[in-house]
Measured scan of single mutants.
Amino acid sequence: KELVLVLYDYQEKSPRELTVKKGDILTLLNSTNKDWWKIEVNGRQGFVPAAYLKKL
């Protein structure tokens, strides 16, 4: 499993997105899109802007 660090808080703006908090370490599911990465948070899957995340 690949992990990502959340660099900035992000509030979901659609049902396909997820809310994340700065400092969270989460599972990366897909990073093929350069702008939006798919991650998992508490069993939910969704997208967060790639600029808000850093691969560990």
Rank of each mutant, 00 (worst) to 15 (best):
T27C: 08
L28E: 01
P15S: 12
L7W: 03
T19N: 08
W36Y: 11
V4H: 01
L29G: 02
T19F: 05
Q11R: 10
P15M: 10
N42M: 08
G46K: 02
W36N: 03
I25W: 03
E2S: 11
I25R: 05
E40S: 08
W36T: 03
L5Q: 07
G43K: 06
L18H: 04
L53G: 01
F47T: 03
G43A: 07
K54Q: 13
L29W: 05
G23M: 03
T19H: 08
W36K: 03
R44D: 07
K1M: 14
L26H: 15
E12G: 15
G23Q: 02
P49C: 03
T27A: 09
L26Y: 14
Y52S: 10
N30I: 07
L28Q: 01
A50S: 14
Q45Y: 09
I25D: 00
D9V: 01
Y8P: 00
L7I: 09
K55N: 08
E17Y: 05
K34D: 13
E2G: 10
S31Q: 10
Y52K: 06
T32E: 13
Y8E: 13
E12S: 15
L26Q: 06
K38G: 05
T27K: 10
L28D: 00
K55V: 12
V20M: 05
T19G: 06
N30W: 08
L29Q: 04
V48F: 02
S14N: 13
T27I: 15
K13N: 11
D24C: 07
G46R: 02
Y52C: 09
A51G: 13
L5C: 07
D24Q: 15
A51K: 13
L3W: 14
Y52P: 01
V6Q: 01
L7N: 02
Q45R: 10
Q45G: 09
D24M: 13
F47S: 04
Q45S: 15
G23H: 05
P15D: 15
E2A: 11
L29P: 00
E12M: 12
L29M: 09
V20Y: 04
K22T: 08
L56K: 03
N42P: 09
L18I: 12
L28F: 04
T27Y: 10
Q11M: 13
Y10W: 09
W37E: 00
P15W: 09
Y52V: 13
G43T: 05
T27E: 12
K38C: 11
L29R: 04
N42T: 07
L53S: 00
K22F: 05
K55L: 15
Y52I: 15
Y8V: 14
K34Y: 08
R44S: 07
S14L: 07
S31F: 06
E17G: 10
R44G: 05
F47Q: 03
K21G: 06
E2F: 10
E12P: 13
K54V: 14
K54E: 13
L7Q: 04
L29D: 02
T19S: 13
L26R: 06
I39R: 00
F47N: 04
N33G: 11
G46E: 03
D35S: 11
G23V: 00
K34E: 13
T32S: 14
K1T: 14
A50G: 05
L18K: 04
L29F: 04
L28T: 01
L56D: 03
E17T: 08
D35N: 12
K13R: 14
F47R: 03
V6H: 00
W36L: 05
D24L: 08
L5I: 15
T32K: 15
L18C: 10
S31I: 06
K54T: 13
Q11T: 15
V4P: 00
L18P: 01
D9H: 05
G43V: 03
Y10N: 01
E2V: 11
Y10G: 01
L53Y: 00
L56G: 02
G46W: 04
P15C: 10
V41M: 13
V20P: 00
K38P: 01
K1C: 11
E12H: 14
P15G: 13
W36I: 04
P15V: 11
L53H: 00
F47K: 03
V6E: 00
K22W: 04
E40G: 09
P49A: 03
K34N: 15
L56P: 02
T32H: 13
D35L: 13
K55F: 07
P49T: 01
L3Y: 12
V4N: 00
L53N: 00
W36H: 05
P49K: 04
P49E: 03
R44Q: 13
V4R: 00
I25Q: 04
K13A: 14
N42W: 06
K54F: 10
N42A: 11
N33P: 04
T19A: 06
S31W: 10
K34F: 08
G43I: 03
K54M: 14
W36D: 02
P49N: 03
Y52G: 10
K1A: 13
S14G: 14
K34C: 09
